[in-house]
Design a protein around this nucleic acid. Structure first.
Lengths: 193, 193
DNA sequence: AAAATAACATACCGATCAGTACGTTATTGT
DNA sequence: ACAATAACGTACTGATCGGTATGTTATTTT
């Protein structure tokens, strides 16, 4: 050992995550990163590798914390339908409250990088598949409790809800009327009967 | 007048559209554009303005042709539900057939540019709103013909279908199992009862 | 205290970026 | 035929890109 590191690795990775989340991969320069992370260029390279590797680390950090956040939110409500309604509304509220529409870092990456980079195709797919399993388990809980009709297909319905969540997240970037979003959510939730 | 233009303005704009559609705005360089469009740099600037203006022209070209294409497809089937099913399946088929997942140029732009450029926020929003009106009119046709229940909210349902279509288009960039996509489509179509 | 070592900051690299100046060529109107 | 003009190709601009070489500073081990 020798000189001790002056920065907190998690903190600077978090700063990089915020920046990539806001601006995407291509539009974020190394200069943007150094100023936002508060460390110098060689520190980035020695700690995280090149720009793509830093991006990957930031995305992995995002998907992990996001997945557990969603899992917690869906578990915290005895009513499955209300849990989904509350979650979807919350997603909408966040986009309409904040000035900047960051959306979902993973979805942004799916659009920007997945088609041309297999690593991110896989990484983003696996996150969505994981979320869809969380949705499915939540729906199955609703069936077991008798809240939901046992005739519904938990897996297929979960997948449809994931698709709607993605669509919602994306279209909010164009800032449609709030009624558009609210209508879509209510209609989509009728899939949970 | 003097020397006549040697290139077809529509053809080179179409080439630019294909390229921006595949790679997005930032990742497409002027050198990429000149080689794909087959014309020199000054010809681009004198004909279309700068890179952003060329991008905008390409996107406008896309949204217009896409909207009329969708309108036609939905009108060509007497059954509204079958029209939507066929259309959604076709969107899926295209993504799974082609090697590269281009998705929808307008959706790509919504993710990449809309949050930081009001012009594209408006342009992409208006396209989605236009599509949602087409969907709504199609659903209303189904209600009038007796195919669909008159109790359904045509506008809200159309909006939910637009959201699902966006979600589908985006998630296919991560190349999920075909069953994921097919399940989502079938469940979503149960909104048309 | 001295040697070893790793994080630090500065300053640089060649490549590529978007955009343009400029000289040449081809077509027009007179 | 000739002057005017606009599209053409070449070659360039300053700025910025991602990435690194290098020298300095601080901490640890001996």
């Amino acid at each position: 050992m020798a000189r001790t590191r002056e920065f907190d690795e998690e903190k600077v990775l978090d700063a990089a995550m915020q920046l990539f989340w806001e601006k995407g991969y291509e539009a974020t320069s190394l200069s943007d990163l150094t100023s936002r992370m508060g460390i110098q260029r060689p520190s980035i390279y020695s700690t995280f590798g090149d720009k793509k590797e830093l991006f990957e680390a930031a995305l992995r950090r995002y998907t992990m914390s996001r997945a557990s956040e969603i899992r917690t939110k869906l578990q915290n409500n005895p009513s499955v339908k209300e849990a989904f309604r509350h979650f979807f509304k919350e997603v909408a509220d966040e986009e309409y409250t904040e000035g900047l529409s960051r959306g979902c870092f993973c979805i942004n990456t799916m659009v920007e990088l997945a088609p041309h980079d297999e690593k991110f195709e896989i990484l983003t797919r696996e996150h969505q598949m994981y979320l869809s399993v969380i949705f499915q388990e939540t729906i199955e809980r609703g069936i077991q409790s008798g809240e939901l009709d046992s005739s519904i297909d938990a897996k297929a319905t979960a997948q449809a809800l994931i698709v709607s969540l993605i669509g919602l997240t994306v279209i909010m970037k164009s800032r449609p009327n709030r009624s558009f979003v609210d209508n879509s959510i209510e209609v989509t939730l009728t899939l949970l009967r």
